[in-house]
Write a protein that binds this DNA or RNA. Structure first.
Length: 288
DNA sequence: CGTTTTTGACCAGCGC
DNA sequence: GCGCTGGTCAAAAACG
């Protein structure tokens, strides 16, 4: 029970690369893990462009959690996922060769406890949406689905279909609120947003930003994880215009691929309906 | 016919 | 060492 919860929270804190403060709260749901700080006001300052969105997808609210890897500002393009390269293609059917290769693999990458598999910078956010897979302007291919522990909903794994782009994303529903979709991006696109056949709104947008709106219309919420290291200030002024700031998550940096001159949250009215819930709202389940 | 999804199996990491 | 779990592969099926 408690153990399970802890596990779960660690899971999510890991997933979002957000340190989870154990002991701070007792029992709670998934939302509780996303400790929303009082960034609301500053965000609201940014998000004052109400207006209708003209997105085709069903209504959705993005309950955003830009939780990123605090200490992974650099994206080493080639050092990613040995699993990908190592097992990209099993050639032929020669069993012996396979065995040999597997042995080799094992020799080449012995269990390294200390050198945990390097992870790409990740960006997770929650979207209140009926559809699981949001169209974010990029093309994704589903390569797996897994039932996850402590959740009745399966987690889907997608990979960017663009060759040489190893960006992945995971999509799952919050077990706490089945209407909320948790999307986790991993890695950085090495290419501009493609033009999708669906007339996607992803063009000129970072995938994440696109996803914010692509799920549909409606609300959009940004929050910051606690102990967020990118914004050391209690009430950071999310200056998204500085898109090349190395200290910013790749999510923001990725905008370099998107020639849009305007800052993220003034994005052509695509994110106009963002809503920042009071942190209380999200911290509700916190019990004493 | 090419592309995408589904799905069972496999593998690695981690905790006990 | 063993079992559990998350992540990935890859063949088959489904789809456009």
């Amino acid at each position: 029970m408690d153990k399970r919860e802890l596990e779960l929270k660690n899971e999510f804190s890991d997933m979002f690369d957000v340190p989870y403060c154990e002991g701070e709260r007792g029992s709670s749901g998934f939302m509780d893990m996303l400790d929303f700080q009082d960034y609301g006001p500053s965000l609201l300052d940014l998000i004052q462009t109400p207006g209708p969105q003209t997105l085709p997808s069903p209504t959705s609210e993005v309950v955003n959690t830009p939780a990123t890897t605090p200490n992974s500002p650099s994206i080493s393009s080639s050092s990613t996922e040995p699993a990908n390269d190592g097992r990209s293609k099993r050639e032929g059917g020669e069993e012996e060769e396979e065995r040999d290769q597997e042995k080799l693999k094992k020799q080449l990458k012995p269990k390294k406890k200390n050198t945990k598999r390097q992870r790409e910078p990740r960006f997770a956010f929650m979207t209140k949406s009926e559809v699981d897979h949001l169209d974010d302007g990029y093309r994704w291919r589903k390569y797996g689905q897994k039932a996850v522990k402590n959740s009745p909903f399966p987690r889907s794994y997608y990979r960017c279909t663009t060759a040489a782009c190893g960006v992945k994303k995971r999509v799952e529903r919050s077990f706490d609120d089945s209407s909320i979709v948790v999307t986790t991006y991993e890695g950085t696109h090495t290419h501009p947003c493609p033009v999708t056949s669906r007339g996607s709104i992803g063009i000129n947008m970072t995938p994440e930003a696109a996803a914010f709106g692509s799920g549909g219309t409606s609300s959009f919420v940004i929050s910051q994880p606690q102990q967020q290291s990118y914004f050391p200030n209690p009430t950071p002024n999310l200056s998204f215009s500085t898109t090349t700031n190395p200290s910013l998550p790749s999510f923001f940096q990725e905008r370099r691929f998107c020639p849009s001159p305007s800052p993220l949250f003034r994005d052509h009215g695509l994110l106009q309906d963002m809503i920042v819930p009071s942190s209380k709202e999200w911290k509700e389940p916190k019990e004493e």
